[in-house]
């Protein structure tokens, strides 16, 4: 089974999501970024687009307007504004 990490999605208005996931794809300025557990610590500027998280079979999607991703080894925090918020 794939290793999991914690995903936290926060907007200025409220926390949106918190759970452990196996993978994450997010829209960076120069193309999509994939994140798995134990990713090297990073800070990524996000543009408008779709964020997709997978937990084994399940997948979830959010439309974001932009923001920042804070990637740590065991946790990724998305600091974003949502489309239509």
């Amino acid at each position: 089974m794939a290793k999991r990490f914690e995903l936290l999605i926060l907007t200025p208005n409220q926390p949106i999501f918190q759970a452990t996931v196996t993978s994450l794809v997010m829209p960076a300025e120069e193309g999509y970024w994939g994140v798995l557990a134990r990713h090297i610590p990073s800070i990524v500027k996000l543009r408008a687009g779709k964020v997709r998280a997978r937990t084994n079979g399940d997948s979830k999607e959010w439309d974001i307007k932009g923001g920042f991703a804070w990637v740590e080894r065991e946790r990724t925090t998305l600091l974003v504004e949502l489309e239509g918020d």
Binding site: P41, I43, K45, F68, V71
Partner: peptide
Amino acid sequence: EREFLFEPKLEDLLDPLLTH
């Protein structure tokens, strides 16, 4: 000082990040 990956590179990221 720690190892970090930045996207875009730090000098381009810094201004929007610090402003925000």
